[in-house]
Amino acid sequence: MKADVPGKTGLGIGEVALVPVRLAMGLIDAPLRWLQRVAGISGMAAFFLMPNMLIFGIFILLPFFINFAYSMTGSTALFLSDRTFVGSEQYARLFDCRNYLDPNTCAEDTFWTAVANTGWFVIIQVTLMIVVSLVTALILNRELAARSFWRAVFFFPVLLSPVVVGLIWKWILQRQGLLNFSLYGFGFEPYTWLNDRNWAFAATVGVSIWAHMGFYTLILLAGLQAIPKDLYEAAEMDGTRPARAFWRITMPLLAPNLLVVVVLVLIKAVQIFDEVYVLTGGGPGTSTLYLTQYIYETGFAAQLRNPGLAAAASILMGVVLVVLTLLQLGLSRSSEKKGARK
């Protein structure tokens, strides 16, 4: 996006609505002029930056640092000052396992179940998400009639709230739901999908792909459309076979976008919570219990809540996310550089 010259004057009603805003802005101008005289222009920079930084500091930075302290304290007390220091006990508890491959041998078995579930979820969901989004993007990049309509079709669920997404699918997958109805037409008996451990897991994968694929398709499509058409024409003139053109032109030029998308999907998949919480509530049993829900329940919802343990688990998750985000920033920077070189 670039700032350009706006078109016409006249917002009509908008202008009228702006009158009180104008008055207010004008009223605070006098004290701010005084401030500017006292603090100078760099002082004004600090003034403009302050509200954001204040909120940011209190609600993001401060919790971020407190989290470490939290993870080293015990008891169910809320405020740090009331909590007892336990050192690395919480971490020790999380890692207390006889066999790391079997959650049942761990002291905190739900944590390891959540880790294992999240691991499987990430592997399967990210793979499928990339394939589905890429294929959709490639199809939308063809010369289609009404492309923006089709793009909108796939993008539509992205804006829906996770709760709505969860409820829609819960409704469809229930015993009298649309899925059973459709299968009934082929002679299948109704089945309660969400009571089956494997099907419930599959449902969380499928629903999260349904809800978010439009977003990644959009990014990939933007990447595809940025590839100059004349490259393909040149390849055609050189007698390049279409398969070769795909692997030697499309894929290399799309690679930076694709990598960024992979990391973005990864980051989101590790944190999966909302729609799953509504759809299955982590069940049946613990078959769709993922990390964020584990942290939420350990910290807030469980009978014997243990904020220290939740904090320790969240820091472990944070480490994974930091690595992934740094990867993403690095990738988008290098793809920007490549773009600049073009």
Partner: peptide, 9 residues
């Protein structure tokens, strides 16, 4: 999801 516990406090 990473800071919800301390943010809550």
């Amino acid at each position: 999801s990473v800071i919800m516990v301390p943010l809550y406090s």
